[in-house]
Write a protein that binds this DNA or RNA. Structure first.
Lengths: 108, 108
DNA sequence: ATTATTAATCGTAATATTGCGATATTAGAA
DNA sequence: TTCTAATATCGCAATATTACGATTAATAAT
């Protein structure tokens, strides 16, 4: 096979997996970091920042967008991409909860 | 092609991507949640909890272990898996930092 | 209208992941 | 030792991801 059995897991599990998966590539992490660095978010020049061709970067941006990690506004003939903090918050809260639970039970 | 160009990115970017990637599958998220649920960490029956065959679960556990998200102690002929909170902390801190930065600059 | 510029999409090759049956491996129980 | 239980590993098929050249679409500038 090879198909991910999405339907056997809870919505929350799938949600976390989808967002985490989108960050599961260094190029996409680098894109997020670049979007953090530039205050003005006219971000047409992500391609120049990364060691990847334009179609590849475009594809990575699409995946980040699908996962809800970034949002893009059309700004003239360029596109302004920004981090969507709501989605990052979902992950942060999830991991915070894990840490709280695990430290409380301190086994091993 | 298809190979990930790991060497072009920073160590931190690769670290985050590796950990996030390990959580980029609902089965592995489910494993983490199960390890949280059971207070005793003698966790031989993860296979019964998941809709996946034993070799598949074993493979997912291996990936979580490689990413540093869980650690396994041999306990008789079973193995006791536990969440490694240090690694979860790395992600939590990373996302906290993103949120702090993004809310400060509020663009888009 | 013609010509850049910016970014998305298509097509495709290389590679990685997922899942599982079959088979090892390892340690306790009989 | 022999049998059983718990996991890991091997090998393979199905599928997904990654990367990029070529092309397209859309807007801006001349």
């Amino acid at each position: 096979m090879g198909a991910t059995k999405t339907d056997h897991f809870t919505d929350k599990q799938n949600q976390i997996a989808t967002i985490a998966k989108a960050l599961g590539h260094p190029a996409r992490v680098a894109i997020i970091e670049y979007l953090m660095k530039v205050n003005t978010c006219i971000c047409g020049d992500i391609v120049n920042e990364l060691p990847l061709a334009q179609p590849t970067v475009s594809q990575h941006l699409k995946e980040l967008k699908n996962a809800g990690l970034i949002k893009g506004n059309i700004e003239g003939n360029a596109i302004c991409y920004c981090i969507d903090e709501k989605t990052v918050d979902v992950l942060k809260d999830y991991f915070s909860k894990i840490i709280t639970t695990v430290t409380r039970q301190k086994c091993c």
